[in-house]
Design a protein around this nucleic acid. Structure first.
Lengths: 158, 158
DNA sequence: CGAATACTTGACAACTTAGTCGTGTTTCTG
DNA sequence: CAGAAACACGACTAAGTTGTCAAGTATTCG
């Protein structure tokens, strides 16, 4: 259970774009500089994000990357799903099969319930945080997160 | 963001032990058979669990593994922490540093808040599910999980 | 004792993920 | 049009995870 490097750095790059004033383009070099990452790596990450439709690229001189939507319209869930391989509920028990073609507990699996419960639980968290909610200083972000979760963290409530 | 294979299979092995009647020892071979995994692999996983104090091993003929505590006294959180490298809050921003010795946003980091919030959120889920709650059939497990979470999933409430 | 059973340990090969590099393509500017 | 700035892409190296193997140690039982 861990956050992958791509997810971490991809989100950072996206946040740099979100901080750019009114849809200003930023070059890979600028972003790399601000995040102390190599340009080559930032490029790779941005291409992933572009493929997922979260950012848009402009080629040529004066080119660069821009956020495709307002920061308030992009959820962390989308970012993580775009960049990392997030296991969806149906990967469970087809991904882990041991030595047989099908999960040993296919018809009655105690693990599946927890894993899919956990997966949903996490998605719920991520889907309620937007890029915008991560802007501003750290203290403010913590507060917003705690507040957002108090309202929205219960996957079982209607 | 994903569940590692070790976490998955380690939990499965532990559940097999939890299903054994009144602390009956089970051999690696038996567990491997029931979960359709190789004996070598199950051995490795059980050693990890033993190192963490979750199971106890008995050597020699008639040896095997036993759960160290009652299933109701073992939380998923412990299992996952024993087996996988769960990032704690203080790994964040020391693990991901880019090209500098210290995180670029050390003093004011928008990412840290989310990541640590997410980490706590997940731990909260895992710490409220016990091995016992995963026994029984899948339908019952789902219900118990939903029920448990409704009471205990809010890290911000006191 | 000695043979069989079962855990113990560390090394290792296969695979996946992380991060880099070189070369190519597009666009702007003079 | 030529050169510079910037993205595009695929191949490649390095590092970390998975899963296996072989040789070793402890325990039981005849």
């Amino acid at each position: 259970m861990k956050i992958s490097a791509q997810e971490e750095y991809g989100l950072r790059c996206l946040l740099e774009l979100a901080r750019a004033r009114d849809g200003q383009v930023m070059t890979v070099r600028e972003i790399a500089g601000k995040e102390a990452l190599s340009s080559a790596y930032v490029e790779k990450l941005l291409r992933l994000l572009a493929k997922a439709g979260l950012v848009h690229s402009l080629r040529g001189l004066k080119g660069g990357y821009v956020l495709n939507r307002a920061p308030s319209q992009v959820t962390l869930g989308e970012v993580v799903r775009a960049i990392g391989q997030v296991p969806t509920t149906d990967h469970i028990c087809t991904q882990f099969t041991g030595m047989q073609a099908e999960c040993v507990h296919f018809s009655n699996c105690g693990i599946r319930s927890v894993w899919s419960g956990l997966t949903n639980y996490i998605q719920n968290f991520l889907d309620h945080a937007t890029l915008e909610s991560l802007l501003g200083d750290e203290y403010a972000v913590s507060n917003r997160l705690a507040h957002g979760l108090r309202q929205a963290h219960d996957p079982t409530r209607r």
